[in-house]
Amino acid sequence: MSSKSSAAQSGQALWTKMPKANAELFALTYGSLVTELVRDYEDPIEVNAQLDRIGHSIGVRCVDEFLSKADVAGMGMTTQCQSLRDTAEVVAKMGFKMFLGVQAEVGGFSQDQKSFSIYLQDNPLSTFVELPGDEQGGSDDLRRLKYSNVYCGVIRGALEQVNLKVECNIVRDTLKGDDLNEIRVELKEVLTDGAGDDYKEE
């Protein structure tokens, strides 16, 4: 992907071709999963970890769908991402758009170009959702719940499949009163292709 606008255009083109499902059913289904996790694990930190794990399992599979569909649609995926900037553009403008119909923005690159932020204006997961606030007291623990943490897992899982080891964190969340959602992505390591040492012939 060379220019910024082309990623957005490709994302839009991909989105129009995707069979659709009702966004509210989607949000409620996710809600039902989170509720179950909260009930089972109680500790919000553990729930966040579980959501991340679930996201990872989705991520490793949805990257395949993404690559095959982007390729079939002739989106010029023959040219690989040259830098993390390209990758960020593709994740935000094509990935998010293709699966969720919302466009995400990229920004906040660090000096060393190894971390960036994905900004999400609309979060399809958080429709109808309200987290217990300060004034309600009681279940104050739930304030530590990262409701949309599944995104982090998805991004981590998807990028892992293309040899990028990243760490993700939700740093701003509209459910907690921020004016937008921000996911911070940090590149840890570029993995090398090929079988691991365990599989090498002796």
């Binding site: 989105w15 995707m18 069979p19 659709k20 499902a21 009702n22 966004a23 059913l25 989607f26 289904t29 996710y30 039902s32 999963l33 179950e36 996790l37 679930i54 399992s57 989705i58 599979r61 949805c62 769908e65 293709m98 699966f99 969720l100 119909g101 399809p124 599944v150």
Partner: peptide
């Protein structure tokens, strides 16, 4: 009117729900 998510996204989440249970 544009609201909606991809069927795939729903399927991924639902599949995780089923696996979890």
């Amino acid at each position: 009117s544009s609201d909606g998510v991809s069927l795939s996204a729903f399927a991924y989440i639902y599949s995780e729900l089923v696996q979890y249970h």
